[in-house]
Amino acid sequence: MSDVKIEASALSRSYRRADGAEVKALSAVDLRIEAGQFVCLVGPSGCGKTTLLQIIAGLVPPSGGNIVVNGQRVTAPGPSRGMVFQKDSVFPWMRVHANVEYGLSCRGVAKAERQKVAAQYLERVGLSHVAGAWPRELSGGMLKRVAVATVFANGADVLLLDEPFGALDYVTKRQLHDVLLTLWAEGEAGRRRTVVFVTHDVDEAMILADRIVVLRAGRVVDDLAVAADRPRTTDALLLPGMVRIKHILLTHLGLEAAR
């Protein structure tokens, strides 16, 4: 578990706002993420966590510094880094199974093979019964399941999720946490996929993460290991170690005074 999967060094990103002011979204971020880790990026809105994720994905170039994934410098988006977006990214003009197959078809996987893989992942997320449906016929939670199935089916070993479940109701969100953790955990240790999950929801981070990285004003301000066993039950979240982490996170978010 010691090989480094994602390495950001002195990463910065600034852009010019419409009024001409220079805004620094990220400044001098150093971050090493090991293979198989489930990392949550937490911070108040505007702290740069989405920007960091987009730089790792290759959707946004850094203004300075370096981002290396799998030993290679990131210059453009690619299938080795799957992304689940905050907004619905499922193509409305393709049926559900075609969406799940899309990445595979881009990489030239034969039709029979990609149909098999897509069917398998649709079953894993509990959507076999709507494989032939149009996305407009699905609910928001089902669309997120399709998006998750799509990136897992594509076989990326780095998964980037940008507040994917932010707009969902509590029950649906918890169900999707289970789906995500099951898919993540299915690989044997060492072959697990590396996950970077952006959220502003402290509880969500504590349920999911091995490690929580806190960003504020474009900088990494804290880096917490979450050692609790999985699955993390309601009781597990109330253990002293977890409560301590929650206090630290809430303090970083400005919701509690430092103690």
Binding site: L59, P77, S89, F91, W93, Y102, G103, C106, R107, N154
Partner: peptide
């Protein structure tokens, strides 16, 4: 057309030509 579709296609491994064929065209039809 929401840029999220094109971004999603690129992160899934689509080439520029495929993005035009699979996203830009059907999305604007």
């Amino acid at each position: 057309i929401d840029p999220v579709y094109e971004e999603s296609a690129y992160t899934l491994g689509a080439s520029r030509a495929r993005v035009v064929r699979d996203v830009l065209l059907p999305g604007t039809v």
